[in-house]
Simulated assay, not measured.
Amino acid sequence: MRLKLVPRETTWDFFRILRLTFGASAAAVIGSILLFLLVGLNFGIDFLGGTTIRTESPAAVDVGAYRDALTPLGLGDVTITEVFDPTFGPDQNVAQVRIQAQPGQESVAPETIAAIEEALRGVDPGITFASVESVGPEVSGELVRTAILAVTLAIAAVLVYIWLRFEWQFSLGAVAALVHDVVLTIGIFSLLQIRFDLAIIAALLTIVGYSLNDTVVVFDRVRENLRKYKQKDLRDVLNLSINETLSRTVMTSVTTLLALVSLYVLGGDVIRGFVFAMIWGVIVGTYSSVFVASAILLWLGVKRDWSKPDQEAGTQFGGAQP
Rank of each mutant, 00 (worst) to 15 (best):
L204T: 06
D85L: 09
E133D: 15
P125H: 11
E106R: 05
K232F: 09
D91Q: 13
V151E: 01
A202W: 09
E56T: 15
D91H: 08
P322G: 11
V179Y: 00
G301C: 04
A320F: 13
T112K: 02
G104S: 08
L178Q: 03
I200G: 03
G173L: 08
N93P: 02
V290G: 00
A313W: 09
I242V: 13
G76A: 10
A259C: 09
A115I: 01
T286K: 00
A150S: 14
R227K: 15
V261F: 13
S262H: 02
N243E: 02
A320R: 14
S289K: 01
V302A: 15
R195F: 06
D13S: 12
N225R: 10
R195M: 11
Q316C: 11
R248P: 09
N239C: 05
V183Q: 01
Q231N: 12
V261I: 15
V302E: 13
F47Q: 07
K4A: 12
F189Q: 06
A150T: 05
V135Y: 03
R272C: 01
L205W: 10
R121V: 07
A174W: 03
G122D: 03
A130C: 00
S32V: 07
G273S: 12
D91T: 13
F291A: 10
V135A: 05
F291L: 07
L234S: 00
I116S: 04
S241G: 02
V94N: 01
D269E: 15
I242L: 10
L212A: 08
R98C: 09
L266P: 07
I162P: 02
F88A: 13
V6R: 02
L48I: 03
I30H: 00
A150D: 07
Q316F: 14
G44C: 11
I207F: 05
A24P: 05
M251R: 08
E56W: 10
A177F: 05
G141D: 12
L75H: 08
N243K: 08
D124R: 07
D91V: 10
I201Q: 07
L20F: 14
T286R: 01
A28L: 14
A27E: 06
G273P: 02
A203I: 03
